[in-house]
Design a protein around this nucleic acid. Structure first.
Length: 423
RNA sequence: GGAGAGAUGGCAGAGUGGUCGAUUGCGGUAGUCUUGAAAACUAUUGAUCGUGAGAUCCGGGGGUUCGAAUCCCUCUCUCUCCGCCA
């Protein structure tokens, strides 16, 4: 959620900035401004009546103490009309406030200045490419065929037990998952991220605070009986650790990491994009989250990008980094870098990580603040990124490292999985 | 799942209808003393909204009352005992 002060004082910037998302903000900003002015004047009226009532109540109390019953009753009669007046005003003020809040939820974050205008992934900018396309002597197999050939992943069994998009990882496939998770967590730890193992279900407030609600209601699994949501990403529990927290100035930077499964309904997805591991309802991910002083948020972003680059390099994967255009960026993000690895057998790029910078957009809902040098509270900045999401990494590893009769495992993983190849 | 108790400021913990935004202790900050530190002493120390006067906040929501931390209803959460259980 944007800060209300931004809407009060920087309307042009908001409207201009949101054009990059093809979001026409003129109407909504005008509506909010109008409501906000009304809210302030009505609230001010209400408060002066409240002050009046408070005074009268005190006088009544004093009268009773002095035994001036009649005078007290006189004053009591005076409060009646004021009270009614106050209640009417309160109803108005509350309803205006609610309207403002609902409108505020509809405004996405303002893209950073380097973000370009665009409609879809076609308009994303490639800002870095690394590595070379792997060479094969014969036609490489896609990972779903490799998974079958070497009995690493059982998609049919997942369908039987749960449904499509919930695969079983088997034997060396399962061990490889575990190895990747450990490798990613170890690397994050070395980079100074504190490890958490979090709940996989969260309450409504948490989902609201990181912005999954109300915008993306349909994308989460919902445990109705207890009103819990299955987390679509580790970002939700990790960031919510700091909901309603005021951070002492010296505690920055805060760096968190955690492995969680992620659950996504992915309603409406179908076709070749969902083949094999490309899109699942449940997948594993190691997430990194940072909570920063506004001065350090740029540096934090760069560090996160470097961290993810190093992971992909160590895994020997060919990758590229994209800066997402306004139209392709998530609702709450101001700047997002996507990392994609090249899948040789599918001949396409697969997204394996997304690093986003939110400015105070999340903090505002989270009420996540720090005590500044001016002794006042200010909103923190939050960032997060996948480091990394497993399925497509696994897909690329299998496909790109296939050799005659075996699949080679990258060196860095040997110690974690206990084997060098799959045959 | 059954029975009971409870939820107050960073923490502990008073307060059961009227200057209570809240006694006190600890902690934090600043100062005095000290070469420095500790101790001691003194002062200060919650948040939100509002240009401001001021308003609001004692788990959340609602009610009674001129007036609610205090009374009533309801929800949520925590603890204790019993039951069940990895």
């Amino acid at each position: 959620m944007l800060e209300i002060n931004l809407i009060r004082n920087h309307q042009e910037e908001i409207i201009e900035g949101l054009k990059k998302r093809n979001f026409d903000a003129i109407d909504i900003v005008n509506q909010i401004t109008k409501l906000d002015n009304k809210w302030r004047s009505e609230k001010s009226k209400m408060e002066s009546i409240a002050a009046n009532l408070n005074q009268l109540s005190k006088s009544i109390g004093a009268c009773y103490k002095n035994g001036e019953i009649e005078q007290a009753n006189d004053l009591k009669n005076k409060t009646k009309a004021l009270k009614e007046n106050e209640q009417t005003l309160k109803a108005t003020v509350d309803s205006i406030q609610k309207q403002i809040e609902e409108l505020m939820y509809e405004i996405p974050n303002i893209p950073n200045k380097e973000v370009v205008k665009g409609n879809s992934e076609e308009d994303n900018e490639i800002i870095l490419s690394y590595g070379e396309e792997p060479k094969f002597t014969s036609e490489p197999l896609p990972h779903w065929e490799l998974a079958k050939k070497y009995n690493l992943i059982d998609f049919e069994l997942g369908v039987k037990v749960t449904g499509s998009g919930f695969p079983f990882y088997v034997d060396k496939g399962a061990k490889l998952q575990r190895a990747l998770i450990n490798f990613f967590l170890e690397e994050a730890g070395k980079a100074g991220y504190k490890e958490y193992m979090s709940p996989h279900l969260v309450n409504e407030r948490s989902a609201l605070a990181t912005g999954q609600l109300p915008d993306k209601e349909g994308q989460m699994y919902h445990a109705n009986t207890d009103n819990f949501y299955l987390i679509p990403t580790g970002e939700v529990p990790l960031t919510n650790i700091y909901r309603d927290v005021i951070i002492p100035n010296e505690d920055f930077s805060i760096k968190l990491t955690g492995y969680t499964p992620c659950f996504r309904r992915e309603a409406g997805s179908y076709g070749k994009d969902v083949r094999g591991l490309n899109r699942l309802h449940q997948f594993d991910k190691v997430e990194i989250v940072r909570i920063e002083h506004p001065n350090n948020t740029q540096k934090a972003l760069e560090e996160m990008v470097e961290h993810i680059k190093s992971l992909l390099s160590k895994l020997n994967l060919q990758y590229r980094v994209l800066r997402l255009c306004g139209g392709d960026m998530g609702f709450t993000s101001a700047l997002t870098y996507d990392f994609e690895v090249f899948s040789a057998a599918q001949n396409k790029w697969l997204e394996v990580s997304s690093v986003s910078r939110f400015y105070s957009y999340q903090s505002n809902r989270l009420k996540l603040r720090f005590k500044g040098n001016d002794k006042k509270n200010h909103l923190c900045h939050t960032l997060n990124g996948s480091a990394l999401a497993l399925p497509r990494i696994l897909a690329a590893l299998l496909e790109n490292n296939q050799k005659e009769g075996k699949i080679e495992i990258p060196k860095v993983l040997h110690a974690f999985c206990g084997f060098n190849e799959i045959s």
